[in-house]
Amino acid sequence: MKIFISADIEGTAGILNWNEAEHGHADYAEFRALMTAEVLAACEGARAAGATEILIKDAHDTGRNLMLDPLPAYASIIRGWPGHPDSMMFGLDASFQAALCTGYHSKAGTEDNPLAHTSNLRISRLILNGEVASEFTMNALCAARYKVPVAFIAGDAGICAEARTMVPGIATVETLQGFGAASRAISPAAARIAISEGVEKALSGASLPAPVTLPEQFEVVVEYNNPVDAYRASWYPGAKSHGPRAVAFTASDFFEIQRALRFMNS
């Protein structure tokens, strides 16, 4: 059984401040280690369920966050960003039985996590087919392109609730709940136990969740905080201005949406 893990950091148990998520800050080392520990817990759970091969995408910021030496021999890792539109799901293909998400966070414009955002801090909202979308939204649809189900997610309460609505049957571990600039989190030790057990149970069940159904048509609207970013993005082929700070793009193939966002959000 081949398993793919997309690992972020802003939904790691206990995280609160951007200094804890960014290279160069003294607080980062602790949360880099905690992010790694949650990924290791997911690997252990997958292995217990019968996984023989695990591919991990380090999917936060620089793509150089996870500590390498603790990774098990049956896992491999993609670090950095090749520029491919699959982005946080790069490396996934149809040969995988399931995808897992760790350290995931709520979408921009919500209050479930002080670090809530979508893709980057220049975006105020990402709207897909009339609904405000998260990174999980886009990544679950990316997995659906390969007909791979997303079977598990660990992250803040908001993104777990969203995942349960989008993917009926998905297993979730809620690591924290935001309250303005504060949060309440479970302990890292409790998170690791819950992630390991949750992944094992999710992958050992009689059936996995179905891959998300891809709509026949897509319209993505990117609302930026700064009109300068909207103007620049409007020059992507097929993109159109959608108000003073927003750009819209339509396509029938979700990969074309991913490709557009790859350039419009850079």
Rank of each mutant, 00 (worst) to 15 (best):
H23F: 15
L71W: 11
G24H: 07
A75V: 00
H117M: 06
L214K: 04
S204F: 03
D93W: 07
M138A: 04
L100G: 05
F263Q: 06
A75E: 11
P168E: 03
A49P: 10
T250Q: 14
W81G: 02
A151S: 09
A161W: 12
E131I: 00
T62Q: 15
T62L: 14
I78V: 15
H105V: 05
V199F: 08
V173P: 12
S87T: 01
A171H: 12
L71Q: 08
R259L: 12
E30C: 14
G63H: 03
R192S: 12
A41E: 07
H242N: 14
F96N: 01
V199D: 14
E30H: 13
G24F: 11
Y224P: 13
S196A: 11
P114V: 00
A13E: 09
L92Q: 00
R64N: 12
N19A: 13
E30V: 01
I15V: 08
F136D: 03
H117S: 02
D69T: 10
L40H: 03
S119W: 08
A49T: 00
I159K: 00
P244R: 01
L40I: 07
E200G: 08
L121D: 15
R245H: 12
A189Y: 11
G91T: 01
T62R: 10
T137H: 10
A210T: 01
M35H: 10
E216G: 09
S134G: 06
E53A: 09
N17C: 09
G155S: 02
P211G: 02
R164G: 06
G24L: 04
A21H: 02
